[in-house]
Structure formats: structure tokens, C-alpha cells
């Protein structure tokens, strides 16, 4: 995708954002919201690979990296799902429809989605880790003929923090798609799975992954697993995958090292010889094994 692009001149300043209008804001869970950003004239076309991220700026407050949940070309808009966790995200949560937010990107490598063609995709997400994976799921449905089955394994802290509730209902109804949800601890009114999301990739768990454990062995061999969540979560997933000797070149993870510039200059996300913002944020498990454990 990059090879056709001309090298930019030094007058094309990569740090300067453009400003897009917030056209819709929807509450997602009690700590997360969806923000639709309309792309201004001259910026309508976005060359985007699922898993990439943007730098969002609130003037006077700061800039943060946020992964793209969806790009909707027909509406010329971007969808960002954002949890209220820091100074900038808190300010974004206070913003209203009609206000403008700074955008630059997309940055990072994204998932090597071409490599997934003809395969089953198992998505394992913890908490808001499902936000970046939504772009993969949308890509899957838009290009369904290129792929085999899809399974979404999702873990939330509690029922109030479950995101994409409505979507999951509709994903479930689609052909070749399954969704499994678990919450950390049993709770009144919840009759689904409880325990951490790593249970869903545990061969001994009753409601474990369909594709990995309840299909023909040939299905498992033709599967890629995409994992997004905090390090403590993905390490437990990797442990389970290790137990079943799942090939490390068929597992992809998104790292979320602290980033400031998004273009490999500020040094914050440096992890060994890699800059997570540029060489990542998506790494295969195989690559991760060769990297310093500084993520």
C-alpha cells in the first residue's frame, strides 16, 4: 500500500492535523462513547487497514492515539470508540455534536488482512480491546466471500461495560459467525459465562471456542487468532494457545505502548528495535517472542 506513495517533502508537515466535525456521539457503556467524525473536504478518502490508529487532538488539551473502529466511506466519516480514562479522553467525552476535533493518520501497520483470506478468524478481545477489532469485523462482513468463519470471544469486567451489545446480536445472526461473551465475576441478572476471557480459549472450558475446539482439526489449522487487550490479558491467552500448540505465526496482537507522535520520532513507544507506532501496533506472536518484554 505504501509503495505507490511518493516520498513526502519536508514541507508536508506530518504533525499538522486536519479538523473534522463531530456529527454524532452515542453512549456505548457507562465509560465509553462512540464518536463519528466527518472528514472535511480534501480529506474524504482514507487509505485504511484495520488495526491502524489515528492521532486525535483537542486544541489546548492534548493529543492521543486512538484506533479506528470503522471508516464509513459513504458517509465520509470515521468512527472512534473512546473510553474515558485520561485528561484528553475526558475532554473528548465532554464534547458535543458540531464541535471539531483534530485528526491525523492513519498510522501503524494494521493487521495483515490479505494473509487472512480463505481462513477462519477468531477474535479475542478484553474490555475496550474490541474497539480496534471492530474494523476487522466490519471488513470481514464487507468482504465475506474472501474469508471462512468468524468467531468473536469477548470478555468484559461486568455487564455494564459490555460494548457493541447490539452489534453482537446482529453478528450472531449472520452466517458463519459466533460470539461468546464472559464477564469477570458472577453477578445478579447475568446468566452467561463468568471468568476471564482466556477461559474461552481453554480446551477444558465448557463453552470454549467453536472453531478452535469444536470443529474438525482441519478448521483449527486454517485459523488466525487476533488478540487485543491489556498485556496481562493477552499473556494469559498466549499461555492457553501454547498449551494446544497453536502456531505462533497465526496469532496477531496489538500492543499499546504509550505514544506521543505516532510517526516513530518521539521515542515513547520504543520497544527494543521497534517503534510500536510504526513497526506495530500489530505484531505476530512469533515476532513478539523475539522482542524485549517492554510492552
Amino acid at each position: 500500500m505504501e509503495k505507490n506513495k511518493k516520498a513526502p517533502s519536508i514541507n508536508q508537515n506530518p504533525y499538522i492535523p486536519f479538523f473534522g466535525k463531530l456529527t454524532d456521539i452515542i453512549d456505548e457503556s457507562h465509560v465509553t462513547k462512540r464518536f463519528f467524525v466527518e472528514l472535511p473536504k480534501g480529506h474524504e478518502k482514507v487509505d485504511f487497514i484495520p488495526g491502524q490508529f489515528f492521532q486525535l487532538t483537542v486544541p489546548g488539551v492534548g493529543e492521543i492515539p486512538i484506533s479506528l473502529s470503522d471508516y464509513i466511506p459513504e458517509k465520509k466519516s470515521l468512527l472512534f470508540c473512546i473510553a474515558n480514562t485520561g485528561i484528553v479522553t475526558n475532554k473528548i467525552h465532554q464534547m458535543k455534536v458540531g464541535e471539531f476535533i483534530g485528526v491525523r493518520g492513519p498510522y501503524g501497520n494494521g493487521f495483515p488482512i490479505e494473509k487472512f483470506k480463505g481462513k477462519n478468524i477468531v477474535i479475542v478481545a478484553g474490555g475496550i480491546g474490541l474497539f480496534p477489532l471492530r474494523s476487522v469485523i466490519e471488513y470481514y462482513f464487507r468482504n465475506k466471500n474472501d474469508f471462512n468463519k468468524l468467531e468473536v470471544l469477548y470478555g468484559a469486567r461486568n455487564p455494564r461495560e459490555i460494548i457493541f451489545r447490539e452489534e453482537m446480536k446482529s453478528w450472531r445472526l449472520k452466517k458463519d459467525t459466533t460470539c461468546k461473551i464472559t464477564i469477570d465475576k458472577p453477578e445478579k441478572g447475568w446468566d452467561g459465562n463468568t471468568g476471564f476471557v482466556c477461559n474461552l480459549v481453554d480446551k477444558n472450558y465448557s463453552d470454549s471456542s467453536e472453531i478452535l475446539f469444536h470443529c474438525a482439526a482441519s478448521e483449527r489449522e486454517n485459523t488466525v487468532v487476533l488478540v487485543v487487550g491489556p498485556p496481562v490479558m493477552f499473556n494469559s491467552i498466549l499461555k492457553k494457545l501454547e498449551e494446544i500448540n497453536f502456531p505462533d505465526d497465526s496469532v496477531y496482537l496489538s500492543l499499546e505502548n504509550h505514544m506521543k507522535c505516532g510517526i516513530g520520532k518521539c521515542g515513547h513507544c520504543n520497544c527494543g528495535s521497534k517503534y510500536v507506532c510504526q513497526d506495530g501496533p500489530i505484531f505476530s506472536w512469533k515476532e513478539l517472542k523475539t522482542m524485549e518484554k517492554e510492552y
Binding site: Y15, V58, P59, G60, E63, C266, N270
Partner: peptide
């Protein structure tokens, strides 16, 4: 070569986006 990036406002409607040296 590392730096930190931040915003600062001069008034309600004006300000700048700046960077400073930072340390690992």
C-alpha cells in the same frame, strides 16, 4: 532525540501545540 508533545492555551480560543525534550 526523544520529545514530549503537549498543548497550551493562551486564551479560551487560542494556544499552541508544542514539544519539549523528554527523557526515557
Amino acid at each position: 532525540t526523544c520529545f514530549d508533545v503537549a498543548d497550551t492555551s493562551r486564551s479560551k480560543n487560542e494556544g499552541c501545540h508544542y514539544r519539549t525534550w523528554d527523557t526515557c
